[in-house]
């Protein structure tokens, strides 16, 4: 297959995986929440129809340009995140610093979610935006260190190398803390579940509270897509990507990502909303030391023990 055709295939595959993944995540969430399975499965379709039919409105003085850029950005960033992950064929962007690319993308979410809250020109939305920034301060550093652990073990920041290095043993077996910290980070930048006080019910929807119509659709879809992109990346980095017997590699990657997405969707309402002040304690006193400890152990094992 020529390079151009391969690149096109990778792009299409990335878009399809994201789209289908988001759809399934939303449908699964609906099945868990709704009165019947059939109702839950049609949730994405019904909500999309409802939101497309809705008018757009905003508060006077809202910064429409930045507000709408934020919504659109939330759909684009997951595409960028997934561009470095091999989904079967080589990734769209086989960057030598793929892990750093992913990290940059998730830091970009800081700006996007904050703009969603600030651009709306409403008090609840603004409070939500600042809650998100406070939560982000708590999960971001641990996330960065958790991303470093597989890179140290594989001696490379390229995601394809990290996936290849797990041919023998997936990294989750000897880096479980980093795996958990990364998943917490994925929930964090997706404004999901316990780490979603920025969009909490006590703020009447928070950063999402003023959105309507297609703007709302973009923001809500963006959250699901971030969740899926983060889960696929975690599966590539810790669960061995496409490695596995019998099934082709793309199939295994999808199965592993689906398990992670399902776990995050199930946990959405089961715990409590971690308000930023409380999450700050957890992030800096528990997650960060755990990530650093994990990194220390991995580094020792790699340099002294010769593991990889």
């Amino acid at each position: 297959m020529t390079d151009a055709a391969s690149a096109v295939l990778s792009v299409v595959l990335t878009v399809v995986v994201l789209g289908v993944g988001g759809l399934c995540a939303a449908a699964f969430g609906g099945v868990l929440a709704g009165p019947s399975v059939r109702h839950g499965l049609t949730l994405p379709l019904a909500e999309t129809a409802r939101l497309l039919r809705q008018r757009r409105r905003s508060a006077p003085g809202a910064d429409l340009l930045l507000w709408r850029i934020a919504g659109a950005g939330l759909v684009l960033v997951p595409l960028l995140m997934l561009a470095v992950v091999p989904l079967g064929p080589p990734p769209v962007l086989d960057s030598a610093v793929g892990v750093v690319w992913f990290n940059t993308a998730d830091v970009a979410v800081w700006a996007l979610v904050w703009l969603l809250g600030w651009g709306a020109n409403a008090t609840f939305a603004l409070v939500g935006a600042f809650r998100f920034l406070a939560s982000a301060l708590a999960y971001e550093l641990p996330l960065m260190f958790a991303l470093t652990a597989p890179a140290v073990a594989a001696h490379s920041l390229r995601v394809t190398d990290i996936v290849a290095a797990q041919a023998g043993l997936p990294y989750v077996v000897w880096m479980p803390l980093a795996f958990v910290v990364l998943l917490v980070g994925v929930a964090g930048f997706s404004v999901w579940g316990s780490l979603g006080p920025a969009a909490g019910p006590d703020l009447a929807g928070g950063v999402l509270g003023e959105l309507s119509g297609p703007d709302r659709w973009l923001a809500l879809t963006g959250r699901y897509l971030l969740l899926v992109a983060g889960s696929v990346f975690t599966a590539a980095l810790f669960l061995g990507g496409g490695a596995g017997p019998l099934l082709p590699s793309w199939c295994w990657l999808l199965v592993k990502s689906a398990v992670l997405v399902a776990a995050l969707v199930v946990l959405r309402n089961r715990l409590v909303l971690l308000r930023p002040d409380r999450f700050m304690e957890i992030g800096w006193l528990i997650l960060l030391p755990a990530a650093l400890l994990q990194l220390l152990v991995v580094s020792l094992l790699v340099t002294v023990g010769g593991w990889s």
Binding site: R57, S58, A59, P60, G61, N121, A122, T123, F124, A204, G209, E210
Partner: peptide, 10 residues
């Protein structure tokens, strides 16, 4: 005229 009615006044 903030359109969140009594929920919000900027």
């Amino acid at each position: 005229d903030h359109d969140m009615g009594d929920m919000d006044m900027g």
